[in-house]
């Protein structure tokens, strides 16, 4: 990524595009042990008023978590993930995750398991948008080693 510096409030994270395939929806549902028919059975999803199967919330949760640890690197640990779902993720769509650093505090705040020094607690606002609208909005708190992190400069593209 373009810059390598400690995260600061206002930084934007490089976007992550997730192709919403049928396979992803079904694999995510099963990996999360969610056998609700609307996540794998088109006929039954339609009978319940949905145009197609759609992604379950646990998969969205997992993708949001992955997005943040992808951005902040191997030393990052998720502390809090709070998400709200909006427009469903239907097969064939693309969800683009974007994030903005809201707050950075030095030290691992309230992290019993990781009292080591040299960490920062970062709060990020995340949006996952698809062609219908915002699939997910949320706030993620994670601890990161105090040091360089990959954030996007202007218009940064792919991942490292």
């Amino acid at each position: 990524m373009s810059t390598a510096s400690a995260p600061r409030a206002g930084d934007t994270l490089p976007p992550l595009e997730i192709p919403v395939t049928r396979t992803l929806i079904v694999a995510g549902a099963i990996a999360s042990r969610d056998y609700q028919d609307v996540h794998h059975d088109v006929e039954l999803a339609k009978a319940k008023g949905s145009p197609d199967i759609f992604m379950n919330i646990l998969t969205t949760n997992g993708l949001v978590g992955r997005y943040l640890t992808d951005c902040f690197g191997p030393g990052a640990t998720l502390r809090k993930v709070a998400i709200r779902l909006g427009a469903p993720n239907y097969p064939g769509d693309t969800m683009t995750l974007t994030g903005t650093v809201e707050q950075v505090e030095q030290g691992a705040v309230g992290a019993e398991g990781a009292a080591e020094g040299g960490t920062a607690t970062v709060t990020v606002n995340v949006v996952g948008a698809n062609s219908i609208g915002k699939h997910v909005t949320g706030t993620v708190t994670l601890t990161v080693p105090a040091g360089p992190v990959r954030t996007a400069g202007a218009g940064a593209g792919g991942d490292a």
Binding site: A27, I30, A31, T59, G62, G65, R66, T69, L78, V81
Partner: peptide, 29 residues
């Protein structure tokens, strides 16, 4: 889970692996 999510975070593999925190609910399903 990591395969489905495309999550390659180092903390979730190897002898010292921990579970992805976002799996919290999965263990209760």
């Amino acid at each position: 889970w990591c395969e489905a999510m495309g999550d390659t975070h180092a903390a979730y593999t190897g002898p010292e692996a921990v579970a992805p925190p976002t799996m919290l609910q999965v263990w209760t399903m």
